[in-house]
Design a protein around this nucleic acid. Structure first.
Lengths: 68, 68
DNA sequence: CCCAAATGGAAAGTACACTTTACATTGTTG
DNA sequence: CAACAATGTAAAGTGTACTTTCCATTTGGG
């Protein structure tokens, strides 16, 4: 899964640490999401979407992962 | 998090097992989601939404969980 | 240039999504 | 009622999301 987190966060002019605090997760979690080290839980995805006033689908891009 | 999985699945007239096979997860996973034993991963949420031709937000209802 | 702020990322531990196996319960339907 | 289909659910194991701690690298402003 890809995501537009870094792009969207920078457009809002906020730091990873500020976003992390707002979402009540660690800064490393934000960094890991932005750099694709892992995917968010659905709860975190909802928090992120709500924070930015967007839908999950606008932020996280699912393209038929062929990982079997 | 609540979800409308059971409702939507029944409206389509398909069995838990059929849905499970289509999504490539176990039948128990579907049952557990329908009965709220746990939340789906975001990948599974995307698969479910895509399967039903709906958005994640239409199926999974996030209401500011106050679980801290 | 220099320092500090911002970010990248590894390591070890915890929580939970998901699997397989197994069994019990609840409807049908013959 | 008998027998089978559909669902509920528990237990134990695995993978991964997320945490805390720690250090390295990058970047911008004085």
């Amino acid at each position: 899964m890809n995501n537009r987190l870094e792009e969207i966060r920078k457009k809002r002019g906020i730091k990873q640490e500020e976003l992390a605090k707002a979402l009540e997760v660690s800064r490393q979690t934000i960094g890991s999401l932005e750099n694709g080290r892992y995917n968010p839980s659905i709860l975190l995805a909802f928090k992120i979407a709500r924070f930015f006033g967007m839908s999950i689908e606008e932020i996280f891009i699912y393209e038929e992962e062929n990982n079997v």
